[in-house]
Structures are given as structure tokens and as C-alpha cells.
Design a protein around this nucleic acid. Structure first.
Lengths: 208, 208
DNA sequence: TCTGAAGTGGACTAAATAGTCCCATAACAT
DNA sequence: ATGTTATGGGACTATTTAGTCCACTTCAGA
């Protein structure tokens, strides 16, 4: 939302907003499938059925478009995860969350990886603003996981001395690393295995 | 080694081998820093001080060069890890291995991530051969970790019913996910945290 | 309803980029 | 020695790509 409009404070009619949204949607799909670097503006134009002047009317250039894509993907992922994790308070709930992610990724045999993670690795070293936005999104996502862990703690399913933040970091790393290994192997098994190991660790903390 | 020479079976003089190596070395550095997609052949030429005909003499094109880079990076990483892990047989040894990786990554504040992992995410979905090579390299790397875990098992530091292969997968995912989070945050802390969690889990298996 | 700003289309440009080609020189085998 | 093959330099081309420009249309408020 912050970097949403390139020409800050400009008026934006409903028609304009629609065009802008179509551009972002097309760019999001293309960049997920082909990668950011391999996606050209002409392809985005063709896919969204919009002319070049429109693109430069709404965005300062490719970098700005990429940032808009990051915002868009980020919103979607965070909303999805908020719905999936917002009310989870048991280990079983976490396992169901794991199942959903793994099954979803299995549909593509692991290809393309995590929508947010792929953007992050490709963009982080080239665009400081984009990197910051992505970093914040990961923090938010991790916060949702930490919330689940705190609720586990409250219900006694996790000892009070466990650091929920560190466990959330470890769980997120297992998830992202799992995505990456699955993408490279074209097989979701390593992703399932790595999340399972993280969950087993969390579970084991209350059995000692 | 397999995809090493583009024009298979051609003679290769010492001079030619040197030129080829210079091209690969320059391409490796550039692609690590700038990314594969953002690295142009002209840049590789300039950095290696070689003319275009040489590049096309030794490689069929950019894809072939990328595969040579993967082979080169893979060899380096595997050799490094073989030296670091080949004789490790204690949890303490694993922790020292962790320290070395974290400290090394801290020098860049996490930037660029894992040499192999970055290549994997960027190339896996576009070049099937490259993906396979990377997948094999990850398997080899994981095998080294599994070897350590088997030695732990032999010495009684890990129960015999533990699946060393699955634990190695989880450890590798924690490492790669940690690299990614560190790269996005420009801070190695999450990498350290995630590997620590994986190691803590491994350690905890013998204390129950 | 009038006016200025937002929205739109698409041709155009300049630069970059992958890949080709040709000719020259060095190395090697016999 | 000599023919053959590897190595080398670098100009050249066709295409792609980001980005510009301008004429035209639609919209919203005074």
C-alpha cells in the first residue's frame, strides 16, 4: 500500500484503478512463472491488454512495477496466512496448515517455489526498497506463526521458557528452505520433511 | 565435469583450458553478485578479458555457460563441505561447521545468499539440465551431512531409530532457508537461529 | 456545460544484447 | 617442414527492451 501509487497524491478514477490493477495482476503472474528478470514490460503489456503509456502513467518504471507486485503478492500471502493461522492454537492445527501448503505446492511439483521467497531471492540484492518491503512481509508472516506458538504456550502445549520468536524464525526457515529444495528436486517431499522436523522439534519441547 | 566441454571430444590445449577457466571464473563471480539473468555476456567478456569468439568457441551459448558455472560452483562448495564435514563425528563438530558458515555469511551481512541456493532458485524453472545438476549437488551435500549423522549414531550420540537422511534434509532446509531470510533481512541472525534450532532438535533426540 | 486533469493508444527512439562471421595467429601431429 | 586444428580478435547484425512523446478521449467538479 505504501509504494502503491507512483505519482503520489494523484487523482485516480475507478477506470484508472482498474487498469492499474490489471497491470499488476498480469505482472504478478508473469514474474512468478518466468522470474522478475526474465519478464519484460512488453510481455506485461500483452498479457494485460494495456498500452505502454498506461504502464508508464501508473508506474515510474520496471522497478516501481516490481515493488507494486511485491505489495500485491505480500497482501495476498499475508491474508491467506492470517486466515490459515489466525485462530490456530494446537499442534494439530499447525499440522493442518502444513498439509495445506504442501498439497498446494504438490500441484506444481514444487515448481516456482514460494511466491514471496522467489521474489525475495531475486530482488533483495538489487533494490533496497523492495528488499525492505519483503523483509517486513516476512516479519509479519513470522509474527503470525509466533502468535500460534504463544497460544500453544498459553494452553500449556509449549513450555513458558521457549522463545516463540526464535521458534517462529526456525519454522519459517524450514518452510522456505523446504520450498527451495522442492523446487530444485521437483518433488515436494523435502519440503514436507523439513517442516515436519521443525514441528517435531516444537512438539518435543513439551515432552522432556 | 559432465557438461564441462561444449564441443564434446574436441582437443583442448593448455592455453585453451586457461581461457575457458578464466571465462567461467569471471561468469561465476558476476552471476553470484548480479544474478544469472542480470549478467550479460559482454560483462563476462570484459571481466575476463576475452573476446566474444572465444566464449562461443568454448560454450554453445549463455545456457551452456550457466551450466559450466553451476559445475564450477558445485565443485567448490562440495569440496569445501567435504573438508568441513568429512571427519566430523560430534555435535560440537557440527556446531563449529555452523559457526564457520554463519561467520562467512556475516562478512557480507547475508547478501547474495548461498552460492548454490541462489543459482538454484533462479535457474531451476528455466533450464531442466541445470536443475538436475543442482539437484544432484544438493543431494551430494546432504549426503555429507547424513554421513556426519550416521557417525553420531555409531557413537551413540544419536539413537539408532533416527532417520539420518530425513534429519539431513531438515538440516539442509534450515540452512538454505536461513540463508534466504538472512539475505532478505541483511542480517545473519535468522540464519544462525534456524540452524541452531535444527541442531537443537538433533541433539535432543538422544536426551529423551 | 465547460475546463482542466486523468486516462488511453500506439508509434518512435536509443541502447543493449545474444549470436554470427571472417580472417589472423599459435600449437600440434606426423 | 607442413598441413591441420585450436585459439584469438573484433566488427557486424538482427532483435529485444526500456523508456519517450504526442495526439486523442473520458471523467469529475465548479
Amino acid at each position: 500500500m505504501t509504494t502503491a501509487d507512483s505519482h503520489n497524491g494523484r487523482r485516480l478514477t475507478a477506470r484508472g484503478a482498474k487498469t492499474r490493477a490489471r497491470i499488476v495482476a498480469a505482472a504478478t503472474d508473469l514474474m512468478y512463472i518466468k522470474g522478475v528478470g526474465a519478464t519484460t514490460l512488453d510481455e506485461v503489456l500483452a498479457a494485460s491488454g494495456v498500452s505502454k503509456s498506461q504502464l508508464y502513467h501508473h508506474f515510474d518504471g520496471k522497478d516501481a512495477l516490481v515493488r507494486a507486485v511485491i505489495d500485491h503478492v505480500g497482501e495476498r500471502v499475508i491474508e491467506r496466512e492470517r486466515e490459515a493461522l489466525g485462530h490456530v492454537s494446537t499442534i494439530r492445527g499447525l499440522r493442518r496448515w502444513r498439509d495445506a501448503l504442501v498439497q498446494n505446492n504438490a500441484l506444481r511439483h514444487g515448481a516456482y517455489g514460494c511466491a514471496l521467497g522467489s521474489l525475495a531471492t531475486e530482488v533483495s540484492d538489487h533494490d533496497a526498497l523492495a528488499r525492505q518491503a519483503l523483509s517486513q512481509l516476512f516479519t509479519e508472516w513470522q509474527g503470525l506463526l509466533a502468535g500460534v506458538l504463544r497460544r500453544l504456550q498459553d494452553s500449556g502445549a509449549l513450555p513458558p521458557e521457549a522463545s516463540t520468536d526464535q521458534l517462529a524464525t526456525g519454522l519459517m526457515a524450514a518452510l522456505q528452505g523446504g520450498y527451495m529444495l522442492a523446487q530444485t528436486a521437483r518433488d515436494v517431499t523435502p519440503m514436507a520433511t523439513s517442516i515436519d522436523m521443525a514441528l517435531a522439534h516444537i512438539e518435543s519441547l513439551s515432552e522432556r
